[in-house]
C-alpha cells in the first residue's frame, strides 16, 4: 500500500529523523556545526547562546551514514553533475544523460535533483505534475519510464511556483532524506544534479555519500571566461573534498544560424574555453556540445531531445560524451 507524501503531514513516528533542535540565534561565523564533535567546545561556542543546546546533542559519527550506505548499496555507479556556474546546462545534461542511459532497456537509471531552491529536473523530464508516494520501503521515486526514476523537491511543493525559502541546514535534512529514505532499489546509475556554487548541498552530498562511494563528478561549463572562473572554483572544491573528476564537458560552444548556416561563438572562448582549462588542470576533456535552439524547446516541453532530433550535431556530441563517461566509470 502506498500513501502520498503530502507537504502538510507532520512527521510520522516511524521515520528516523535527525535530532530535533532549535537554536536561540543563528550559528556564529566560526560555528563548528551543532552536530559536529566540537559542538559546544570550539572557540566560537564560548559566549554563544546556543552552547548548551549544541553540547547536549548526540555526538560521534553521524548515525545516518550507515543507513544511507545501506540504502544506496544496490546502486552500481554514482555520478555527480557539477559546475560552479549557474545556467550552463547541468540539469539539461543530467536529463540527457539519464535519457541516453535509460535508452538501454537493461539499465536501471535514477536522477536525483539536489537543487532545492530552483529544481529544474522534473520540468525537463516532463513529470512536474507527479507526486512522491510513501510506502513501507520508503519514498517511492517518480518513474518517468520503466527504468528511469526521478526525485526532486518539486514533487512535494503545494504549488508549482512555491518558493522554498530555506537556509542550508534545512536543505541538508532533505538531502539526507533523499539518500536515506528514497526507495531507489537496484540501479546501474544514479545521476545527481546539483545547484551552482560550493556550499551546503555540495559539502553535504559528499559527506553523506562518501562511505557508499561516488564514482566521480562530471563538470559542465560554457566557453566564456566568466563561467570558467567559477568552474575553476568547483574543480578546486572537488580536489579539496577528494571527489574524483571523471571529465569536463563544454556546453553551448558555437552556434549555427538556421538561416545562413554561418557559425558564430555566442559565448566566446577568449581564454581557450573548456579544452584549455582541462589541459591546464590535467582533466579529461569529454567534448563540446554545440548550441541548438531545439534543446531549449525540448526541455520546456519535457521531451527527450536525443529521441526527437537524433541527427542533430548536438545529439551526436552528447552521445559521445555519455560513451566516454561510461568508459571513465569502467562500465564498458
Amino acid at each position: 500500500m502506498t500513501t502520498e507524501v503530502l507537504p502538510n503531514v507532520t512527521s510520522s513516528t516511524d521515520q528516523v529523523l535527525p535530532p530535533e533542535y532549535s537554536l536561540n540565534e543563528p550559528e556564529p561565523e566560526h560555528c563548528p556545526g551543532p552536530e559536529s564533535e566540537m559542538a559546544g567546545k570550539a572557540d566560537a561556542c564560548q559566549g554563544c547562546s546556543n552552547k548548551d543546546i549544541c553540547e547536549s546533542l548526540p555526538k560521534g559519527p553521524d548515525p545516518d551514514i550507515p543507513l544511507i550506505t545501506e540504502n544506496l548499496a544496490g546502486i552500481k555507479h554514482k555520478i555527480l553533475v557539477l559546475s560552479g556556474k549557474g545556467g550552463v546546462g547541468k540539469s539539461t545534461f543530467t536529463t540527457m544523460l539519464s535519457w541516453a542511459l535509460s535508452a538501454d532497456e537493461d539499465l536501471q537509471v535514477g536522477a536525483m535533483d539536489l537543487d532545492i531552491c530552483g529544481p529544474s529536473l522534473p520540468h525537463m523530464l516532463g513529470c512536474t505534475a507527479e507526486v512522491v508516494h510513501e510506502s513501507n520501503s520508503g519514498w517511492t521515486p517518480v518513474y518517468v519510464a520503466d527504468n528511469l526514476a526521478a526525485m526532486s523537491i518539486q514533487f512535494m511543493l503545494p504549488e508549482d511556483d512555491s518558493a522554498v525559502i530555506w537556509r542550508g541546514s534545512k536543505k541538508n535534512l532533505l538531502i539526507k532524506k533523499f539518500l536515506k529514505d528514497v526507495d531507489w532499489d537496484y540501479l546501474d546509475y544514479l545521476v545527481v544534479d546539483t545547484p551552482p556554487g560550493t556550499s551546503d548541498e555540495h559539502i553535504s552530498i559528499n559527506k553523506y555519500m562518501q562511505e557508499s562511494g561516488i564514482d566521480g563528478a562530471l563538470i559542465v561549463t560554457t566557453p566564456q571566461e566568466v563561467a570558467l572562473l567559477d568552474v575553476r572554483k568547483e574543480i578546486d572544491f572537488c580536489k579539496k573534498a577528494g571527489i574524483n573528476i571523471l571529465g569536463l564537458v563544454e556546453n553551448m560552444s558555437g552556434f549555427v544560424c538556421p538561416n545562413c548556416k554561418g557559425e558564430s561563438q555566442i559565448f566566446k572562448a577568449t581564454t581557450g574555453g573548456g579544452e584549455a582549462l582541462c589541459k591546464e588542470l590535467d582533466i579529461n576533456f569529454l567534448g563540446s556540445v554545440p548550441l541548438d535552439p531545439r534543446i531549449g524547446k525540448c526541455s520546456d516541453f519535457g521531451e527527450s531531445f536525443l529521441d526527437a532530433y537524433p541527427e542533430s550535431p548536438a545529439s551526436l556530441a552528447v552521445l559521445n560524451v555519455v560513451e566516454s563517461l561510461r568508459d571513465a566509470v569502467g562500465d564498458i
Binding site: P26, E27, P28, E29, C31, G33, G84, R167, G168, S169, T198, S199, D200, H202, I203, K233, E234, D236, F237, K240, A241
Partner: peptide
C-alpha cells in the same frame, strides 16, 4: 580558489 562555506 574556492570558497567552501556553509550557510552561517
Amino acid at each position: 580558489n574556492s570558497v567552501v562555506w556553509r550557510g552561517p
